[in-house]
Design a protein around this nucleic acid. Structure first.
Length: 273
DNA sequence: CGCCAGGACGCCC
DNA sequence: GGGCGTCATGGC
């Protein structure tokens, strides 16, 4: 990744990033594509740090109204710019299916999100579709003047007071997640450092957090790249392409591989193979 | 109208 | 420990 300061903006060159593939692939739900003169432009936030970012060409980006200190302290981390995804994809390409998946959507990167925001977001995601997940999270942040609520703010709510979210049966799960996180019976920062099976077990103490949501929180909110969320789509990939199990060599970064595979299978609905 | 959506829970055996 | 109905909501 290279960057330079240009006026109030940061100009970034990173061949292994595509904004559509990364910001609209179901790992984060607060990015909105807005009209612009560029190839694409997104508005969103990391917790409460807002950003408008454009892709001007393949591998070229503008981080609007961003000073160099913020870029270094926040966005390099969030976009995982310190990881060499070319190297990662070379490694994955040892496997035929992964090779195709990386080629299909090579601009996906794993966003290093906030664990609390991920916990809430992926509780909302269960048995839900992406547009509606975004709608619920929109209403949640609008309610707090555009910011994502803290666990303290959410902990004073109950099922009825959350009715405005129209999150259905998930509201009671949000209440439990907020109260456990606020009163300290769930310590997300400690869970992030635990051996993976202990971390899974700890997360599943929260009502509404099962195997899939726990795995998503570990991967997207705690950068545990060995976490491997299995949903209906990935289940299909595993059955179709990996009847003898997912290859051992890719498991340490399996969560990132999973992102490529998820996008690949979802956008290649040809099931004839 | 029924079906599905980046699932989890409660209850059954 | 696995199998199955149920849980809100909204788009198609």
């Amino acid at each position: 990744m290279d960057y330079r300061v240009q006026g109030n903006d940061i100009i970034v060159y990173e061949p292994d990033l595509d904004l559509d593939e990364t910001l609209d692939c179901g790992q984060a739900f607060r990015w909105k594509k807005i009209a612009s003169d560029y190839q694409c432009t997104y508005e969103g936030a990391f917790v409460n740090e807002k950003l408008t970012v454009s892709q001007t060409d393949k591998g070229s980006f503008i981080f609007h109204n961003t000073d160099e200190n913020d870029f270094i302290s926040k966005w390099i981390n969030y976009f995982d710019f310190e990881t060499d995804y070319s190297e990662l994809k070379r490694c994955f390409s040892e496997d035929a299916t992964l090779s195709k998946a990386c080629e299909f959507a090579g601009g996906i990167r794993l966003l290093k999100q906030d664990s609390w925001e991920c916990l809430i977001s992926f509780i909302i995601s269960q048995n839900n579709n992406i547009p509606r997940i975004k709608g619920i999270i929109d209403r949640l942040c609008d309610h707090y003047h555009g910011k994502f609520p803290t666990c303290e703010q959410l902990s004073v709510e109950d099922e009825d007071s959350l009715a405005y979210l129209r999150s259905g049966f998930r509201a009671k799960y949000l209440v439990d997640a907020a109260s456990k996180t606020y009163d300290g019976s769930t310590k997300l920062s400690e869970i992030a450092e635990m051996p993976i099976d202990d971390a899974r077990k700890a997360l599943k103490q929260i009502k509404g957090v099962g195997p899939k949501v726990a795995e998503c929180v570990l991967l997207f909110g705690m950068y545990r790249t060995e976490a491997f969320p299995v949903d209906v789509w990935i289940k299909r990939v595993l059955e179709q392409y990996y009847p003898n199990g997912f290859p051992e060599f890719a498991r340490e970064k399996g969560g990132i591989a999973q992102q490529y595979l998820f996008h690949y299978i979802r956008n290649n609905t040809d099931q004839s193979e």
